[in-house]
Amino acid sequence: MLIEQLINGITLGSIYAIVALGFTLVFGVLGIINMAHGEIFMFGAFIGVIVTSTFKGPLWLAFAAAILVTGIMGYLLERFALRPLRNKQGVSHLAPLISTIGVSILLENLSHHLFGAGNHPFNNTFAEISFQIGSITVYLVQIVIFMISVILMYTLSYWLGKTKAGKALRATAENLETASLLGVDTKKTITMTVIIASAMGGIAGILVGMAFNSVTPQMGLSIGLKGLAIIILGGMGNVKGAMAGGLILGLAETFIVVYGNSGYRDAIAFAAIIVILLVRPQGLFGQKISA
């Protein structure tokens, strides 16, 4: 029982981690909270439903389509909702935040219109396949989700740490002006970051669809707020923090449902934010800002 819950928690947590990574990348480079990230995630989930349920396509095609569509959405978000507000005199620093909230509402309404308000089941051929190890039941879908998450996190870490483009992104995140002095085309880097973050959101959308077998236009908001909670928990703009924070939240939610009261499941994330902000205002992995 305990181990099964642990597996459930890790599965959920690794999805949260991927959602949070999308937030943290954009925050790192642009210094803004992308409130539309949850809705882009939701579109990824719907692309998954359309490919697998409507067209009976294979899962890999669902991933490919979701990456493509959400990546394009990321580009459009940056090009039309964020870039016009950048480096303009007289634009409030809250303007990009409000702009992304606007995009999130637009996307939610659009999805109501396109997909309908109801709950969409996510068909995948191996949803019911499970293994019995002793007394423990493990679903194949959990293993697949976990594997994809680990591969994605590892690839991202490697890319940020070892490749030229990844280093350019980190330099841009730390200091835009310095990065440009070193020869980084920061405009391109920012666009690329928003595209990658959005595509990761799209992948996470499919993973959630697979895990819970349910996709609705409203799912973006709740996952978006949780992603926000995780990056505050882990430290704003911190990649390791997003991964650890995601796992912590996933495990905490799972255990509160099992051993506590399931009604408090969603409250956990925000209770955690309040506690963390009181004890460690910079987040688990964040740097203290010295005066």
Binding site: K167, A171, A179, L182, G183, V184
Partner: peptide, 9 residues
């Protein structure tokens, strides 16, 4: 990495 960034272009 700082030095590598110097040779970025």
């Amino acid at each position: 990495e700082n030095l590598e960034m110097g040779a970025y272009h």
